[in-house]
Deep mutational scan, measured.
Amino acid sequence: MTEYKLVVVGAGGVGKSALTIQLIQNHFVDEYDPTIEDSYRKQVVIDGETCLLDILDTAGQEEYSAMRDQYMRTGEGFLCVFAINNTKSFEDIHHYREQIKRVKDSEDVPMVLVGNKCDLPSRTVDTKQAQDLARSYGIPFIETSAKTRQGVDDAFYTLVREIRKHKEKMSKDGKKKKKKSKTKCVIM
């Protein structure tokens, strides 16, 4: 069974824990209790493949930012979460993405942009803004509501699919490099 290491990042209060708990335990946590770091595991079937999701729910508070490099190193894919009623959390996505790329030393890291709290009427981040940002990053965008469960499975499952595509691409690139290195030079 394939294991996928997913990391949920975003500013404090955007609903990272609520999304994760909704996926794992099928219930909505409405009281806000700032996370330092929590880890969850769940076995699911995605596109006919049974897999184990190892999900790291991270601290959004700035005082825990020193811990970010460590979990970013171990993560295979990242859910970059903002709240649709919090423009600052949307603007912060850029910083999370840049930090992930720096730590992973790669421009090509599996990510999904997630606009959470889409059940709320007080939207300050337009869907088109988020779609445009995701398009500019070359990553999928999904709106979710941890409260109603809308888009929750889709967000995590899409990230797994992005990781699969990335692994497939990397193995193809690896095979191309191996083929090239088999060419021999004969000096007579």
Rank of each mutant, 00 (worst) to 15 (best):
K5M: 09
K5I: 00
V7F: 04
V7E: 02
V8H: 03
V9G: 03
G10C: 04
A11T: 13
G12Y: 08
G13D: 14
G13E: 12
V14N: 12
G15W: 01
S17H: 00
A18C: 05
T20S: 09
I21Y: 03
Q22F: 04
L23V: 09
I24P: 00
I24T: 07
F28T: 01
V29L: 08
D30R: 09
D30F: 07
D30P: 08
D30E: 12
E31I: 03
D33Q: 02
P34S: 02
P34F: 02
T35Y: 00
T35W: 00
T35N: 00
E37V: 01
E37G: 00
E37T: 00
E37C: 00
D38T: 00
D38M: 00
S39A: 04
S39P: 00
Y40E: 00
R41Q: 02
R41M: 04
K42L: 05
K42A: 06
K42N: 13
V44H: 09
V45N: 14
V45R: 12
I46D: 10
I46Q: 15
D47A: 07
D47I: 01
G48W: 04
E49H: 12
E49F: 05
T50C: 08
C51S: 08
C51R: 09
L53A: 08
L53P: 06
D54K: 01
L56F: 04
L56P: 00
L56A: 08
D57C: 00
D57G: 00
A59T: 04
A59Q: 03
E63H: 08
R68Y: 13
R68L: 12
D69T: 06
Q70C: 09
Y71D: 15
Y71V: 10
Y71W: 07
M72F: 07
T74R: 04
T74E: 15
F78G: 00
F78Q: 01
F78L: 06
V81M: 13
A83Q: 15
A83G: 11
I84H: 13
K88N: 10
K88E: 12
F90H: 15
E98I: 01
E98M: 07
I100D: 08
R102M: 06
R102V: 04
V103I: 14
D105E: 08
S106Y: 09
S106A: 11
S106C: 08
D108Y: 07
V109F: 11
V109R: 03
P110T: 02
M111V: 09
L113T: 04
L113I: 15
V114M: 09
K117Q: 13
K117E: 14
C118T: 13
C118M: 12
D119Q: 14
L120F: 13
P121F: 08
P121L: 09
P121A: 09
S122C: 07
S122A: 08
V125T: 08
T127G: 06
T127R: 05
T127N: 08
K128F: 05
Q129C: 14
Q131K: 08
D132W: 06
A134S: 10
S136V: 09
S136W: 02
Y137K: 06
Y137I: 13
I139D: 03
P140L: 02
I142H: 06
E143Y: 02
T144I: 15
A146I: 01
Q150N: 10
Q150W: 04
G151H: 15
V152F: 12
D153L: 08
D153S: 08
D153N: 08
D154E: 10
A155R: 02
A155M: 15
A155K: 11
F156I: 10
Y157L: 08
T158R: 05
V160Y: 10
V160L: 06
R161Q: 05
E162P: 01
E162M: 09
I163S: 03
R164G: 10
R164L: 08
R164V: 06
K165V: 09
K165N: 07
H166L: 08
K167I: 05
K167F: 04
K167C: 04
E168Q: 03
E168R: 08
M170K: 05
K172M: 07
K172R: 04
K175N: 06
K175R: 09
K176M: 13
K176Q: 10
K176V: 13
K180R: 07
S181L: 13
T183G: 05
K184R: 04
I187M: 13
